[in-house]
Design a protein around this nucleic acid. Structure first.
Length: 501
RNA sequence: GCCCCAUUCGUCUAGUGGCCUAGGACGUAGCCCUCUCAAGGCUAAAACACGAGUUCGAACCUCGUAUGGGGCACCA
């Protein structure tokens, strides 16, 4: 059996799309499972869409996810170069070879004519949309005339067989049959000398000895053309599987940056890999999650490592149907990874998020609070709201009314605050256990429910109704700062309690 | 308009002719735990798109219909 060689072939048009990431993951898992090679190839054949720095975004993203490549940019390999713009002569040679063989032809049609033809075809409801094969059978005189008229600018189009059928054997879907008369004479080589995807992917997959093509479902309609190209070249076509697409979370349409990127609860859903990263998702969670959409482990396992996925990965288990992007499941899964993480490591990962939010982070305090927010956050970014009470430069309690708990009044609240202050200020040590024992005792002695006093103190020290566990929070905050905040709460309550004059 | 693909709980999925009174997970609801919020534990509601075949037997095979998705560029 031929060695397994698969490729991931993104275009450098910006950050990776999460759908592309999953395609990369499936290819990578397949390669690793079969001890084959995973090749990264950059398809930068559209100069108009080229984005500066996009290549770095792609390689960085793949590395972040732990998807290493055996051949490709930065690592090289025996089949290079792996960037298509550096392989131009090959495509030109092969395109010209097809012309010489009578299997392709030069087309001199202008963009205006093409647009017009397309419009007419659309309006007339013609069976075959697109190009009308105007230049397919030009006489030499006509060709020469057009050549002169257009200043020698032309594209090379593939001469698609006009009859018969082309069958694609898809590893996931079985045989897919197309009538050749439904298929267009696609452009192989553009007028700027760059190849189109159709030519480049065939030439490269063949010359790089790719054994299996796993690409997105939207390529199915052009697969027969690619097959015909392989036949025209006399090359064996790699095995092929079309992977299902990722749909928007509401199931409406292909997941994309531009279309509805909102889930049913109205939240914005990330689409690009860097958006997931910035939102505070972990690479191991993204890997695990993506592997469960369109593929399943086999037993009922949902949480598994990349190594386990390699072991279990089978193309046959890939579900060919497109799937709505289950963003809520990602949240849950990311949460499980956060909970299982070493607190110290988690703290390191959270730190940059806090700094980006403009906070100056005390690392000791961060390490102290992390174990208490760990089971409360689903993304790293959520650590901001849970810990901001620690980092604010000047603590202000904007709404002293919030101190007053249910079934209590301002006077009672004030008394409780003063009482709690006295208890805490006299504590020998400020460990959370000591605080809790003392405050519980105080509540009991004064006929208050412990939770009432706790919540008053929570608001007083964090200015939030919801916080990490109170005494742990105060312990991390420190005795001095905690007491100072409680004093401030007392002051503000006294002030607002005075009858206005 | 034409071509192509797909169709199991709200969502992601298990299921490859009898093991299915259809399993798991997320989400949802209830209860327990509890200093808020979580996490955790328990419980519940929730699906084979429809119609014809094939077969002793169909979620699984075939054909139609419906619905959803993809494609019809000198973009990939």
């Amino acid at each position: 059996m031929k060695p397994v060689r698969v490729r991931f072939a993104p275009s450098p048009t910006g950050p990776m799309h999460i759908g592309g990431v999953r395609t990369a993951l499936f290819n990578w898992l397949f390669a690793r499972h079969h001890q084959g090679q995973f090749i990264l190839r950059i398809e930068d054949t559209d100069q108009k869409r080229y984005v500066e720095g996009a290549l770095e975004l792609i390689t960085e993203g793949l590395r972040w996810l732990g998807l290493d490549w055996d051949e490709g940019p930065e690592v090289g390999g025996p089949y290079g170069p792996y960037i298509q713009s550096e392989r131009l002569e090959r495509y030109q040679q092969w395109a010209n070879w097809l012309v010489e063989q009578g299997k392709a032809y030069r087309c001199y049609c202008t963009e205006e004519r093409l647009t017009r033809v397309r419009e007419i075809a659309e309006k007339s409801g013609r069976r075959l949309q697109g190009y009308d094969r105007h230049c397919r059978n030009l006489s030499e005189e006509e060709r020469q005339r057009l050549h002169d008229e257009t200043g020698g600018e032309y594209v090379i189009r593939f001469k698609m067989p006009l009859e018969g059928q082309t069958v694609i054997h898809d590893l996931l879907r079985g045989d897919i049959t197309f009538d050749n008369q439904e298929l267009n004479d696609l452009v192989l080589l553009k007028s700027d000398g760059f190849p189109t995807y159709h030519l480049a992917n065939v030439v490269d997959d063949h010359s790089m000895e790719i054994s299996h093509i796993m690409r997105a479902e939207e390529w199915i309609p052009t697969a027969p053309i690619h097959k015909q190209l392989y036949m025209a070249f006399g090359w064996e076509m790699p095995q092929i599987a079309h992977l299902p697409v990722l749909l928007n979370p509401n199931g409406k349409g292909k997941m994309s940056k531009r279309s509805a990127r909102f889930s049913e609860d109205g939240r914005a859903v990330p689409v690009l890999l860097n958006e997931f990263r910035e939102a505070g998702y972990l690479p191991e969670a993204i890997d695990n999650f993506l592997a469960t959409v369109g593929w399943s482990f086999g037993d009922d396992r949902e949480i598994f490592t990349l190594a386990e996925a390699i072991e279990a990965f089978e193309l046959g288990r890939v579900n060919p149907a497109g799937s709505a992007f289950p963003i809520h499941k990602l949240d849950w899964m990311n949460g499980t990874y956060i909970r299982d993480m070493e607190p110290l490591r988690l703290a390191q990962l959270i730190k940059p998020f806090l700094e980006d939010a403009g906070f100056e982070v005390n690392i000791e305090q961060l390490v102290g609070i992390v174990p208490h927010i760990q089971e409360r956050i689903k993304t790293l970014k959520e650590a901001i709201e849970w810990t901001q009470f620690l980092w604010v430069e000047e603590f202000v309690l904007t709404d002293p009314e919030a101190l007053i708990q249910k079934k209590m009044d301002a006077e009672g609240t004030l008394q409780a605050l003063r009482g709690a202050y006295d208890v805490l200020v006299n504590l020998v040590d400020f460990a959370y256990e000591s605080q809790e024992a003392a405050i519980r005792q105080y509540a009991e002695d004064n006929g208050l429910k412990a939770s009432q006093v706790f919540n008053i103190l929570r608001v007083a020290t964090t200015a939030q109704q919801v916080s990490p566990p109170l005494f742990q929070s105060m312990a991390v905050l420190g005795r001095e700062e905690s007491l100072s905040r409680i004093q401030k709460a007392i002051d503000s309550l006294e002030k607002s309690n005075q009858p206005s004059q």
